[in-house]
Design a protein around this nucleic acid. Structure first.
Lengths: 330, 330
DNA sequence: CTGTTAGCGCGTTCAT
DNA sequence: ATGAACGCGCTAACAG
């Protein structure tokens, strides 16, 4: 349209006018025309030529889960600021889907991948990472791998939460866990255990129950706990879904929080503070995790994926004390 | 690697062996090699050649909102089944961001766009749709445009909800609305109004309040309503965030649901049934909306965006009756 | 039954 | 200060 060659237009539009000593006049003309005709370079052709798509794959076990959708939001926003777009992929908490997704994203030539991995194995991830596409793991981590991760310091969070319950006078505290073997879960259980020990409260292994992060598990385990000859006085639920199940069971049992029973949950939710009895929770620093993950991934992409050392960072969560734990006379 | 030409490999890998009468032997060989070396065609080059990226842009006002993340999940899963990947874009409920996002997606040569639009204007959307990229609108709709949409029958949902409250004996029912001027909101208000009229309950315009879908609006308006000389006996909250605010205000006021005050909310949430008093809600058919949006968009993409007539579909929501409305003696 | 050629729209190298 | 030529990896048209 301007009469100039594609080369010149390309240079101007990529801000290389100075470098190529293109006349002010020409630059202006081209820039104006671009605006006028609402021209945007074809990113596909650009990607092909540059072998760089400015695209990031995001693999999430369940985007409908508030924690993940919050993290995804920050990742998308921060990435966009740097010119990157996000391919959203939901792995449905399924390992084989996750595996397919990795290949799919490789086929789409994403510049990097952020993944909240599913399951306990990491072989396919380690294997995949050899193809040169940088990966950053969030949420969980796979200790055996050399893949960098940004995660919550789950041990710390669980330790704080448990210590809080103990400080309120409780000694019979149950812990309803998620999937055994996943770092997220195991670190929380460790935090719970060590808080008990450090505070000289005997750990009753029969009070560490459950096997899933879902609501049903929380419901079932709570019912079982309440049926014991001597039920615990408090429950530490290792996920927000578990705590929803726990609340349902408690309500059905005719008990009220915190008067008759105490509860602390991992994962703060928008509604946590607005329940009939505002719930004390461990809040993960979603923005920080997401932001750091993006920064790290972009560093890996820029540096050609050869960092001095593999970054493994645990971000401390925050205990939000509301009103779901009863103060007991000791 | 196999010694065959790129053309032959391309044909085999695209399942055109039969069509081009490529020998079984050759096909097998190529397929095996592809698997062995974990070869995936470069989708970027493919996109450039085909002028088709098998990519869909998804613009959402707030992906951290459960309704949208649920819809996004289904959209992603259904699209993937058809070979499409999703570019997730969060418009931050901001019109100018939304505008940028449209251009960004056009630059990335997405084959189509699904958008939950922000604001009341539709000029930029209508304008944009002229460039040939098919668009499907969800959640809200812009009546003036020729852009197809899949949305909830908000009028119907509000009518059902209000009728239910009336049937429980209430006559002084407030309605806390979201942003005035948006179809989603206005249809709900109409449904509320007409349900009142049809049931011979006078409409008190002073009980239709509010101006935002957020929690703060729900809180503020509820406080004001409760301070009236004669407060209403029930509130119909037009979003889940509004109802959270309403609940907070009610609790602070020392009232309990449903004994002292009744509440019905739009948007069912995972926690809705698990509150101290399980909440009666209007549930939008998220999967159906998302699934239909994907189907429709893919039709538009395939048909070259020239459908016989513009599809405008409203999907009936479902009233989930729980226990947040008190039965009043008439 | 398979190969050769050409071109999608860019950015870069080389030339002037 | 600018343009021509080339090639990124793919698939469709043409050739045999």
């Amino acid at each position: 349209l301007t009469g100039f060659s594609a080369s010149t237009v390309s240079r101007v539009l990529n801000g290389k006018s100075e470098q190529f000593r293109i006349s002010k006049q020409t630059s202006q003309l081209i820039l104006k025309a671009a605006t006028k005709y609402n021209y945007y370079p074809n990113r596909i052709a650009r990607g092909l030529r540059l072998e760089k798509t400015e695209t990031i794959g995001l693999i999430i076990p369940d985007i409908a889960n508030y924690f993940f959708s919050s993290v995804a939001k920050t990742i998308e926003i921060e990435s966009r600021k740097k010119g990157y777009s996000i391919f959203l992929c939901d792995s449905l908490d399924d390992v084989s889907t996750e595996r397919e997704l990795l290949n799919l994203l490789a086929g789409r030539r994403v510049d990097g991948i952020i993944i909240a991995p599913v399951g306990t194995g990491s072989k396919h991830l380690t294997e995949f990472s050899k193809n040169g596409i940088p990966i950053v793991i969030i949420d969980r981590y796979l200790p055996e791998t050399k893949i960098p991760y940004i995660s919550t310091d789950n041990y710390y969070g669980a330790f704080q939460a448990t210590s809080h319950i103990i400080s309120m006078g409780h000694r019979s505290i149950a812990c309803i866990q998620g999937i055994n073997g996943i770092s997220t879960n195991n670190d929380r259980v460790s935090g719970y255990r060590n808080a008990m020990i450090k505070n000289n409260v005997p750990v009753d292994e029969e009070l560490i129950v459950g096997d899933d992060f879902g609501e049903e598990n929380g419901y079932r385990q709570t019912r079982l706990l309440l049926k014991r000859k001597v039920p615990p006085t408090a429950i530490f639920a290792l996920s927000n879904l578990i705590s929803l199940g726990t609340m349902r069971a408690i309500a059905e049992h005719g008990l009220r929080i915190p008067d008759d029973f105490s509860l602390v949950s991992f994962d703060d939710q928008p509604y946590s503070g607005l329940l009939a009895s505002p719930m004390t929770t461990v809040e993960q620093m979603k923005e920080e995790i997401a932001g750091r993950a993006v920064d790290l991934l972009l560093e890996l992409i820029t540096d050609g994926s050869v960092p001095k050392e593999v970054e493994k960072r645990l971000i401390k969560p925050r205990l939000i004390i509301r009103n779901s734990v009863k103060k007991i006379q000791i």
